[in-house]
Amino acid sequence: ENVVSAPMPGKVLRVLVRVGDRVRVGQGLLVLEAMKMENEIPSPRDGVVKRILVKEGEIVDTGQPLIELG
């Protein structure tokens, strides 16, 4: 699984990683606000951040690609 998608609609509050960062399974990639709750979106696997597909403040839909892992 190379693309991390939004599990719910919401607003991207914070991106916690940068392109080139090594991440571990379960590590927070970004914080999504949904229904006034902050939800940290975890990495599904170990890898390297290849691309960040959203910006802070952006509104996303369920299933929208957020981050690509390499």
Score class of each variant (00 low, 15 high):
1 E>P: 00
1 E>L: 00
1 E>H: 00
2 N>Q: 02
2 N>I: 03
4 V>N: 14
4 V>P: 12
4 V>K: 05
5 S>E: 08
5 S>V: 10
7 P>D: 09
7 P>K: 13
7 P>H: 09
10 G>D: 13
11 K>D: 15
12 V>Y: 02
13 L>I: 08
13 L>G: 11
13 L>D: 06
14 R>D: 06
14 R>V: 06
14 R>H: 11
15 V>R: 02
16 L>K: 05
16 L>R: 09
17 V>K: 04
17 V>L: 06
19 V>H: 12
20 G>I: 09
20 G>H: 02
20 G>W: 01
21 D>C: 01
21 D>G: 04
22 R>E: 04
22 R>Q: 07
23 V>P: 13
23 V>D: 00
23 V>C: 01
23 V>M: 11
25 V>N: 15
25 V>W: 12
25 V>Y: 15
25 V>D: 15
27 Q>D: 03
27 Q>I: 05
27 Q>K: 02
28 G>W: 07
30 L>W: 06
31 V>P: 00
31 V>D: 11
32 L>S: 10
32 L>Q: 10
32 L>D: 00
35 M>L: 09
35 M>Q: 09
35 M>N: 04
35 M>G: 04
36 K>D: 05
37 M>W: 12
39 N>T: 09
39 N>Y: 10
39 N>I: 08
39 N>Q: 08
40 E>Q: 08
40 E>K: 03
41 I>M: 11
42 P>Q: 14
42 P>F: 10
42 P>R: 14
43 S>V: 09
44 P>T: 15
44 P>C: 01
44 P>E: 15
45 R>C: 01
46 D>Q: 03
47 G>F: 03
49 V>L: 09
49 V>G: 03
51 R>P: 11
51 R>W: 12
52 I>D: 10
53 L>H: 14
53 L>G: 15
53 L>N: 10
53 L>R: 03
54 V>E: 04
55 K>S: 05
55 K>W: 08
55 K>T: 09
57 G>L: 08
58 E>L: 03
59 I>G: 03
60 V>R: 05
61 D>V: 08
62 T>M: 05
63 G>D: 15
64 Q>I: 09
65 P>W: 11
65 P>T: 04
65 P>N: 04
66 L>G: 08
67 I>C: 00
67 I>W: 14
67 I>Q: 12
68 E>S: 00
69 L>P: 04
70 G>D: 10
